[in-house]
């Protein structure tokens, strides 16, 4: 996609979890080796679509995430392409040891899809919210970590994950996500997408915050601030080249994510910036706290994850840049 200077019109789209479930089912039709493991949340993760069509390749694991991860590892060792799915907080946190010792360490070809990530699951509250999954998954050597922003990128990256030989984590959300990309957009694992050109500051975002970054850039343009917007859909391996270029060309970077700032995308970007072209940075994310029950919109507003917060961070960065 050619970077645009025109205003984006963001239309409502599918939740990324639903785009995952639909793409997974299509993959199941194309590839007999695709199998699915679920822990009593298939209606929520949309793996129920796959289960309905391919019951013999769908393994109900019950509410036992640790076992489920290792079952997936064994299926992968047996030549299958297992997509293992649950709420991100349960799959990653309860299955972390199994992800470490039975998946990452031997490097097996397992695909883990964590849905209901971030705080935008809303009313269910913090016990169900995954705000540390990116940090945890990036700490596992060999894992590819993906965080699609909309249904188009999710569909493409689920296919990319299936084609990749090795462990992959895909982060999905519960709420409907604005459509950012045209249907024919091409995505390459490890390559960021520059959505909007800009010269004064770069907003690097992932997941739901990509749409907020676009809204922020639109508003800033009206004030005469030229903000570049970059979608980092691959958290690991990071697109170091795109980050270094942003640091060099705009000399100010704001990173926005629906994740704890500790261990999130921002600190990973900061490492690249420090190693390549140090510049002013600001961070939009969850600051050392757990959220609460409320509507997704109320929570994103309260915990500082909307375009207003991105704009404020840009202003701070520009003030420091001088």
């Amino acid at each position: 996609m050619t970077p645009s200077k025109t205003r984006f019109e963001l239309k409502s789209g599918l939740a990324t979890r639903e785009a995952f479930g639909r793409t997974l089912t299509a993959l199941g039709r194309e590839n007999q080796d695709v199998v699915v493991c679920d822990a009593d949340l298939s209606k929520s993760t949309f793996t129920s679509l796959f289960a309905k069509e391919f019951p013999e390749r769908f393994f109900s694991c019950g509410i036992a995430e640790a076992n489920m991860i290792s079952i997936g590892a064994g299926l992968a060792a047996g030549g299958k392409i297992p997509f293992v799915s649950s709420f991100s907080c349960f799959a990653v946190n309860k299955g972390f040891e199994q992800l470490r010792v039975t998946v990452a360490y031997p490097g097996v070809n397992l695909k883990l899809v964590g849905t209901h990530s971030g705080i935008s699951i809303g009313e269910d509250g913090p016990s169900q919210m995954s705000i540390e999954d990116l940090g945890l998954m990036c700490s596992l050597p060999g894992f590819v970590v993906l965080s699609p922003a909309d249904e188009v990128s999710m569909a493409a990256l689920v296919r990319a994950a299936a084609a990749h030989v090795g462990p992959v984590f895909i982060r999905a959300g519960r709420m409907k996500a604005p459509v950012i990309y045209p249907r024919d957009q091409v995505f390459t694992v490890g390559h960021a997408v520059e959505l909007i050109e800009g010269t004064d500051v770069t907003i690097i975002a992932t997941g739901l915050l990509v749409a907020e970054a676009i809204r922020a850039a639109d508003a800033l343009e009206a004030e005469g601030v030229s903000a570049r917007v970059v979608d980092i859909h691959t958290i690991k391996p990071l697109d170091r080249e795109a980050i270094a270029r942003a640091a060099q060309e705009t000399a100010a970077i704001v990173v926005a994510e629906e994740h704890l700032i500790d261990g999130g995308l921002g600190v990973r970007v900061a490492q690249v910036v420090a190693e390549t072209c140090p510049c002013v940075m600001e961070f939009v994310g969850i600051r050392n706290t757990y959220a609460e029950s409320a509507s997704p919109e109320q929570l994103l507003d309260k915990y500082g994850l909307v375009s207003r917060d991105v704009i404020a961070a840009v202003r701070r960065a520009l003030a420091r840049k001088g």
Binding site: V35, G74, G78, G79, T102
Partner: peptide, 14 residues
């Protein structure tokens, strides 16, 4: 045992 069960299921499917 979990890993072994995954292998056993893969063998059955195959």
């Amino acid at each position: 045992l979990s890993v072994g069960l995954g292998m056993a299921l893969a063998a059955r499917l195959n």
